[in-house]
């Protein structure tokens, strides 16, 4: 087995165990949250990082040139953000909601062919790396906001039903969930904006047209418009709490469609071939 395949399998295994442990954690009758899932995710992340670096060195370009690499890099970005939040805010049970999302991307990645291919002249531009990293980090922030949104909805049910026990004690407070959810969207939105702008500049240097109404372009514009709505609903109309949480989950569903659906169903220049 090739070394980078082995590294990928190791990362996948660690993420898998972390996700399972995270879900088990939800049903355990203990009052404190175990830190094991965080460490498992960190171990997986280290193997994953080496896998990405190995592919980068072997291929000579940032490994996001087919669906295997794209879904894998997407999970890497989410785990990175997750670890940063885990370290900084120490939110109880965050891993139980984020690691399953990571696992969805990792498992999707594992079903696509893994060979490292030569890239077309179009991708041989430094804008490629900039564009992809901005877009993926933006998507990762939206993924985290979705996870936090789900946590909010669960915690809100406990608060509403006044069952102040079990998960209620382990989940973060509604206020901090709300604040971090908003904070993540205010990170994701500028990152998505920068990703679109870098795409615009790159398209203009490669084709002489900064906007071609290609399906991926349009769907990222749609995502941008929807998150612009989310922000205005929150800041001008005052949609907070439950509504904001639901919006961040729907927003991420749109991101997922733009990521997988557009690539697999609709044709265009962003489709790998």
């Amino acid at each position: 087995m090739e070394i980078n395949v082995l590294l990928f399998e190791l990362a996948l295994t660690f993420y898998f165990i972390a996700a399972i442990m995270g879900v088990i954690e939800l049903f355990r009758r203990r009052k404190t949250v175990s830190k094991t899932t965080g460490y498992l995710a960190l171990a997986g992340f280290l193997f994953h990082s080496v896998n990405i670096i190995a592919r980068y060195i072997k291929g000579g370009h940032i490994p996001v040139t087919n669906l295997h690499e794209a879904a894998s890099f997407m999970s890497w970005c989410i785990v990175l953000l997750f670890l940063l939040h885990e370290y900084r805010y120490k939110l109880g049970l965050l891993s139980s909601f984020i690691m399953p999302i990571v696992l969805i991307f990792m498992l999707s990645s594992s079903i696509f062919p893994r060979e490292i291919k030569e890239i077309s002249p179009l991708l041989r531009s430094y804008w490629f790396g900039i564009h992809v990293i901005l877009a993926f980090m933006g998507n990762a922030a939206f993924a985290m906001a979705c996870g936090i949104g789900i946590m909010y909805l669960i915690q809100e049910r406990y608060v509403k039903s006044k069952r102040l026990s079990g998960l209620f004690l382990k989940l973060p407070s509604l206020q901090s969930l709300e604040e971090i959810n908003y904070h993540l969207i205010t990170m994701g939105f500028p990152l998505l904006t920068l990703a679109i702008i870098s795409g615009v500049i790159w398209a203009n240097t490669a084709w002489g047209t900064y906007w071609r109404w290609d399906p991926k372009e349009v769907w990222s514009l749609i995502t941008w418009l929807i998150y612009a709505i989310v922000l205005h609903l929150r800041l001008s109309i005052g949609w907070r709490g439950k509504k904001a949480a639901i919006l961040s989950i729907l927003g991420f569903a749109l991101v997922m469609f733009t990521f997988f659906g557009v690539t697999l169903l609709l044709k265009g220049i962003h489709v790998f071939n």
């Binding site: 109404w213 399906p215 349009v218 769907w219 514009l221 749609i222 418009l225 929807i226 612009a228 709505i229 205005h232 609903l233 001008s236 109309i237 557009v262 609709l266 265009g268």
Partner: peptide, 24 residues
Amino acid sequence: SVKLAIVLLFLLAVTSIIGTVVPQ
């Protein structure tokens, strides 16, 4: 009205889908 802005943003987002499905 900000509500109009939200309606228009939503209409722009939804109608944009047509062009990604129907070949141009």
